[in-house]
Design a protein around this nucleic acid. Structure first.
Lengths: 142, 142
DNA sequence: CTTGAACCTATAGTTGCTGTAGCTCTTATC
DNA sequence: GATAAGAGCTACAGCAACTATAGGTTCAAG
């Protein structure tokens, strides 16, 4: 039997985060001591490790919920898991592309800055210059 | 004089977002009509465009606050703006690197999956397999 | 049996918005 | 001058995924 602190240490999770996962139904309600403290088994440890590993791969909690559900039903078809992973891959690829575009623009901006006062600053100028972005709504924010 | 809706349309911002920027002090409190509606000048339009452009480059609002402050004081040294932009560039580079690592792992995971039932699924197996990640705390989440 | 670390609940805060409810104001048209 | 649509107003709740705090209780070692 493990305390919540042990689970936290073993998985690199904050104690509050584990309680949060319980609250939103990702982790089961564990048994309790007479005094009301949570006690976990190895199954719970594995489940939390699964969640954390999935989070490290960037899966949103809702996707992890589906993955856990599949993992809990070994007879089901694996296709769903595959498609969740593919969706996540596409998501990651999109984000990479966007960030690479940002990187280019930031590099250009910084590369053009020759110092001096704020009024001469190329960085500020680029940000002020709305010739290319005012009223065109490519939503690149994030 | 512009209404809030005009500013919104011209900068691709939601009306509520503009009010939110006012609330957190990024946008000034504008003049009002007798009936209490906001009316903006061109200066405000430029400021909002600056904010949106900065957001599109991924700058957090706190950084934008500093950039706006510099922009408001043309005599100040440009170094601060430069260092904010460099910090943002580093941030973007870090995120790209992390996402590229995620992409590799996702690709590998998906590439190894040969279908079948959930119990045979390579995707779920990789997520379950904590041999490499349990109790090592590289915080790659986000 | 005492002490101190670890646990408990509940609630608020984080970032950057977005959405809703239930009003009021402005402006164009008649 | 009346009316009606559309835009504006405030205030608050919600999103993701935690994180932090306050103020109290329990556990386990010595």
């Amino acid at each position: 039997m493990h305390t919540i602190g042990t689970l936290a240490r073993r998985t690199g999770t904050k104690v509050q985060t584990i309680r949060y996962y319980e609250q939103i139904g990702l982790m089961p309600e564990p048994g309790r001591t007479e005094g009301g403290q949570r006690r976990y088994g190895d199954v719970d440890l594995d489940r939390l490790a699964f969640i954390r590993h999935s989070r490290q791969l960037g899966f949103p909690l809702e996707a992890i919920r589906e993955l856990l559900d599949l993992s809990d039903h070994p007879a089901r078809d694996c296709g769903a898991a595959d498609s969740i992973a593919r969706r996540q891959l596409r998501e990651v690829e999109t984000r990479i592309a966007r960030l690479q575009a940002l990187r280019s623009e930031l590099e250009r901006m910084i590369g053009e800055c020759r110092g001096g006062t704020a009024s001469e600053c190329r960085v500020l100028e680029v940000l002020r210059d709305h010739s290319e972005c005012l009223a065109d709504d490519h939503d690149a924010i994030g």
